[in-house]
Nucleic acid binder design. Structure first.
Length: 515
DNA sequence: TTCCGACAGTGGGGTCGCAAT
DNA sequence: ATTGCGACCCCACTATCGGAA
């Protein structure tokens, strides 16, 4: 199959907004793909490389390459070229990768180049990723989408399922069962504004600590322990202490879901930044380990002694968990059996407050009767975190990309400094409706003093209310801190810049506590 | 007919490892 | 030794489609 066919379909998919149409287009191409092409074609049209990220980014792709005028590249040629490229390493690797990429692009037409660059940067922007590729695969093979989706979740891989399905037919899906040693997509949580709202939405529920660390899925099969992240990357080598914990538990085959954090001498959690630093250390793990030991804390069990627990209600899985994992290795929790019981609701609020006092991020409220929905962000788990707000001044804004092209999108945010100037605390593009986006573009253009084509600097007059999750240390910004997860709540046209919050108040609000 | 679940998009900051400077 | 780049941790929020209610 020619790469041009993929580029064509990708363009067609991007051109329609109807999901049904996108799925039909994908299915059409999957049907036309030869069995040897399918393991490449399907990830490509899900916007991903089968090799994963291969060390090619914007700096390599920045300079344009003259396009070919005839489409000759086959999908398999491209895959072979990228496989070779992914293997390049060592001194001179940058230059060699650059040469290989440019060679590939020179053989591609303009449309093919656009598609390849999208794949390499992870920005195909066709309005279809894994989920719609699964639907397309189901349509192409005439298998119920739910069956394919389930197999993909349990296999942790669209490509493997596609290969099996196309080679062996629908019965191949039965092979994809929960298997110790093979990671599954972790269940994710939605957000709620308060514990009261979460309890209201869920009914009978458990309120559990939300720890601010790295999500891990731990598989043990006899002496063999494997640890995977949220995106299913294997990180066993980096977490020897987790392996040791898993080996010490009173069962030999299981899959646990939890979070890895670090505790200081007083038993309080260490800030996420330090945990991430330790977790990211790969060269000398034992030194990093000694400097900051990590502790796993578990909150779910998916399998034990060969029993698949995914379909069990959360409460029964918790019973299994408490049998397998002793107290300090489990998250604390508080159960609300009857949401109509005022005392139980009050206990849940107290638990939330106590969790924050212990230095944790918040809570996750979980329906007692919900199964483990692997790979889904269902409404059965709701996270609740405290939110802070500030009134800050817009110092500049950046031109947006994609659907925000032509709009001023990413705002530079400043607090009032001691000398009457403004101190930048970070940026945000989140929380904006299209209407607000349009409005701020107009307003900021009126206030513009400079436009370098990327950043538009403005007179510091517009005040915007910003929600954020806390401060984190920063080497990038002058105050030495930046806002974590900043997002726009609303513009404060009733306020002047002189009434915005000061750096001093921002720092004081978080003094002594690290949220 | 309206509501709501699932998806995709739009990027944020920090940290590490690696190669280039 | 320092700098720049890419990968990958953490993540919030809105718009949209299309099936459920």
């Amino acid at each position: 199959m020619l790469l041009a066919d993929l580029a064509q379909v990708s363009g067609d998919v991007a051109a329609t907004s109807a999901r049904s149409q996108k799925i039909a287009l994908l299915a059409g191409l999957f049907r036309a793909a030869a069995p040897e092409d399918a393991p490449v074609v399907i990830p490509y049209l899900a916007g991903r490389l089968p090799q994963g990220r291969i060390g090619v980014g914007w700096s390599v792709l920045r300079e344009p390459v003259a396009a070919a005028d005839r489409a000759t590249l086959t999908v398999r040629e491209v895959d072979a070229a990228l496989t070779a490229l992914a293997r390049v390493a060592g001194a001179g690797a940058q230059g060699e990768r650059r040469r290989l990429v440019r060679e590939l692009l020179a053989a591609a037409t303009e449309d093919e180049q656009r598609f390849l660059i999208g794949l390499l940067t992870g920005e195909v922007r066709q309005g279809a990723l894994d989920a719609l590729a699964v639907e397309g695969l189901a349509a192409a093979t005439q298998v119920p989408p739910a069956d394919v989706r389930r197999a993909v979740m349990l296999a942790g891989s669209l490509r493997d399922v596609a290969r099996a399905l196309l080679a062996e037919g629908p019965q191949a899906l039965a092979e994809f069962r929960l298997t110790v040693g093979r990671p599954v997509g972790p269940m994710l949580a939605q957000s709620a504004k308060s514990v009261a709202e979460a309890v209201e939405r869920l009914g009978a529920c458990a309120v559990e600590e939300k720890l601010d660390g790295i999500r891990v899925q731990v598989h043990r099969d006899g002496p063999d322990v494997r640890i995977h992240t949220r995106t299913l990357d294997e990180v066993t080598d980096r977490l020897p202490e987790v392996t040791a914990v898993a080996r010490a538990l009173p069962a030999t085959r299981f899959i646990l879901d939890g979070e890895v954090i670090a505790l200081d001498g007083a038993g309080r959690p260490v800030p996420f930044q330090r945990v991430a630093g330790r977790f990211g250390s790969r060269v000398d793990v034992s030194a990093a380990h000694a400097a900051l030991p990590l502790s796993p804390v578990f909150f779910d069990v998916l399998s034990v002694d060969g029993r698949d627990l995914l379909e069990l209600p959360g409460e029964q899985r918790h019973t299994e968990l408490s049998r397998l994992v002793p107290e300090p290795l489990r998250v604390r929790r508080c159960v609300v059996r009857d949401p109509a019981d005022a005392a139980a609701r009050a206990a849940a609020e107290d638990f939330f407050a106590a969790t924050l006092r212990r230095g944790h991020e918040g809570v996750v409220v979980k329906a007692l009767d919900a199964p483990y929905s692997a790979g889904r962000r269902g409404a059965a788990w709701l996270k609740v975190k405290p939110v802070h707000t500030l009134d800050l001044v817009v110092l500049a804004a950046e031109w947006g990309h994609g659907r925000r092209t032509g709009k001023l999108s990413n705002l530079h945010l400043g607090a009032r400094g001691p000398d009457g100037g403004f101190v930048m605390l970070g940026k945000t593009f989140k929380g904006l409706t299209d209407a607000t986006l349009g409005w701020q573009t107009e307003r900021l253009r009126e206030l513009a003093v400079r436009d370098d084509g990327h950043v538009v600097t403005v007179r510091p007059e517009l005040v915007v209310e910003i929600a954020y999750d806390g401060l984190q240390t920063s080497s990038r910004y002058p105050a030495g801190v930046t806002l974590r997860f900043a997002r726009v709540v609303r513009y404060r046209e009733d306020k002047t810049a002189a009434e915005a919050d000061t750096v001093e108040t921002v720092l004081a609000a978080h003094a002594g506590g690290e949220e």
